[in-house]
Amino acid sequence: MSFLSDNEAYEAWLRTQCAVDEAGLVRKHEKMDSHPFPFLRATFFRWARRIETVCPDLKDAPRVLSVGDTHLENFGTWRDAEGRWVWGFNDFDEAAVIPWPYDLVRLAASARLMPGRTLGGKEAASVIIDGYRRGLTDPRPTLLDEQETWMRRFVACSDTDRRKFWDEIAALPDASPPPLALAGLRRSVPAGAVIERFARRTKGAGGLGRPRYVAVALWRGGHVVREAKTIVPSSWEWLHGATPENHFLDAATGRFRSPDPFLTVQDGYIFRRIAADSRKVELSNLTSPVLTADLLRAMAFDLGSIHAATDGAAAAILPGLTARAPDWLQTASRAAARAVEFDYVRWRAR
C-alpha cells in the first residue's frame, strides 16, 4: 500500500478506537509536513506496516516486549517513588512484542534523520550496539542523582523552562473531560487538592489526534497538574493481526526500571503527573545540536534494559548480536531512513 492509503486506513482505524481530536490530527499533519524526523515520529503505523519488508533479514529474530516507537525524542525525566531523578524512555503507547532488532533500527534511523545530526551513520550504529549490549548484560534504570550525573546538562530545567511550562498550562483552553477521564483526573490529584480548572492539551507527534485533558489543582500553596491521555492498542498489533493487548504499563514498569509512581492506566486513559522538571526533552527544538555519542549510548542502554525484562531475552539475543555482520545496524538503519524519506516526499506532494 502507498503511504497515503496507509495513513487513511490508520486514521479510519483510530476513529474506531477513540473520539478523535480533529484539531490535533490537523496539527499532526502540519508536523509531518515539516521535516522527515517529525514525520518518522508521527507515523509509527507505517513503520509497523513496512519494516519487515524493508529489513526482512531481521524479522525472525527473537521477539521481546519492545518500545516500538523508538526514536531520539522518546526520552524524558520523572521522579520515582524515592524522589530520585530518573531519565529514560517515557512513551510506551506503541509497546508490543516485536523482533528485538527493530527497536535498534528505529533508534539508529532517527539519528540519521535528526535535523543537524552530529553523528555519522556508522558511528551512531556502533554506539547504539555498544550501549544496547551493556543494557542487556547489566540492566538498571538511569539515575541522574547517582551514576549518570553527567546527563543533567541535557535535561536540566532552567527558570525559562519553568516559566514556559506554566505559561503553556495557563494558555490551555478550558474543556469538559468525558466522565471516565474526569473521574480519573479527580482521583489522581493529592488528597485535599482543589481542582481549579480542566483543560484540553495538544502535545506530541504520533499521539496527536488522541484526546488529552489536564486538571490544574491548588494544593498546599502551589499548583499541581495531572494529565489524562486516551490510550489505544499499538498499531503494530493492529497491523499484524494480534489480539489487541495493552502493554503500556508492562513496559513502563518493567523490572529493570524505577517507574513514575503517578503513572497509571485505567478506563482507557493514561494518567500521569506533568511538571516543569518531569518532561520530555526534544533535542530538535534546542538551539544547538546536542546529540553526543555518550547520550546516544545511554539511550541504547535504556533500550537494552527494557528488552532484558523479557524472561530469557539476554540469553536469546546476545549470541545473535555477536554473530551479526559488523555493519548490520548501519545497513538496516540506512534502508529504513530512506524508506521514511521516500514516504515523506510522497506525503509532501499529496
Rank of each mutant, 00 (worst) to 15 (best):
residue 2 S to W: 06
residue 3 F to W: 03
residue 5 S to W: 02
residue 10 Y to K: 06
residue 12 A to V: 12
residue 13 W to I: 05
residue 16 T to D: 07
residue 19 A to G: 14
residue 19 A to P: 08
residue 21 D to I: 04
residue 21 D to F: 04
residue 26 V to R: 15
residue 27 R to G: 12
residue 27 R to P: 06
residue 34 S to I: 12
residue 37 F to T: 04
residue 38 P to D: 06
residue 43 T to C: 12
residue 47 W to V: 13
residue 51 I to A: 06
residue 56 P to S: 12
residue 57 D to T: 12
residue 58 L to H: 03
residue 62 P to L: 09
residue 62 P to D: 05
residue 63 R to L: 10
residue 67 V to L: 09
residue 67 V to E: 03
residue 69 D to H: 01
residue 70 T to K: 04
residue 75 F to E: 02
residue 76 G to K: 02
residue 78 W to A: 04
residue 81 A to S: 15
residue 81 A to P: 05
residue 82 E to D: 15
residue 82 E to V: 05
residue 87 W to P: 03
residue 92 F to G: 01
residue 100 W to C: 04
residue 107 L to W: 07
residue 108 A to E: 03
residue 108 A to P: 02
residue 109 A to L: 03
residue 110 S to A: 12
residue 119 L to V: 07
residue 120 G to R: 09
residue 124 A to R: 06
residue 126 S to W: 06
residue 127 V to R: 00
residue 128 I to T: 01
residue 129 I to A: 11
residue 130 D to V: 08
residue 133 R to N: 10
residue 134 R to A: 15
residue 137 T to S: 14
residue 141 P to H: 04
residue 143 L to C: 15
residue 149 T to L: 12
residue 150 W to V: 10
residue 159 D to I: 08
residue 159 D to Q: 12
residue 160 T to Y: 11
residue 160 T to H: 12
residue 168 E to G: 09
residue 168 E to K: 14
residue 171 A to E: 04
residue 172 L to W: 02
residue 177 P to Q: 00
residue 178 P to L: 04
residue 179 P to Q: 13
residue 181 A to S: 01
residue 183 A to I: 01
residue 183 A to C: 10
residue 184 G to C: 08
residue 186 R to K: 13
residue 186 R to A: 03
residue 192 G to L: 10
residue 194 V to D: 14
residue 196 E to G: 11
residue 196 E to N: 10
residue 199 A to N: 09
residue 199 A to D: 08
residue 204 G to W: 08
residue 204 G to F: 10
residue 206 G to Y: 00
residue 207 G to K: 00
residue 207 G to E: 06
residue 208 L to M: 15
residue 212 R to K: 14
residue 214 V to T: 14
residue 215 A to D: 01
residue 217 A to Q: 07
residue 219 W to Q: 07
residue 219 W to N: 07
residue 220 R to D: 15
residue 222 G to P: 02
residue 223 H to G: 02
residue 225 V to T: 13
residue 226 R to W: 09
residue 228 A to D: 10
residue 230 T to H: 03
residue 230 T to F: 02
residue 237 E to I: 02
residue 237 E to S: 13
residue 240 H to K: 11
residue 248 F to C: 01
residue 253 T to P: 02
residue 253 T to L: 01
residue 254 G to H: 07
residue 256 F to E: 07
residue 259 P to N: 11
residue 261 P to S: 07
residue 261 P to Q: 00
residue 262 F to W: 12
residue 271 F to Q: 04
residue 274 I to M: 03
residue 275 A to W: 09
residue 276 A to E: 05
residue 284 S to Q: 11
residue 286 L to S: 13
residue 289 P to V: 04
residue 290 V to K: 13
residue 294 D to W: 00
residue 297 R to F: 09
residue 298 A to Q: 03
residue 298 A to P: 04
residue 300 A to V: 03
residue 308 A to S: 11
residue 311 D to L: 14
residue 311 D to G: 13
residue 316 A to M: 06
residue 322 T to A: 09
residue 333 S to Y: 00
residue 337 A to E: 04
residue 339 A to N: 06
residue 339 A to F: 08
residue 348 R to N: 09
residue 348 R to P: 05
residue 349 A to G: 06
residue 349 A to N: 09
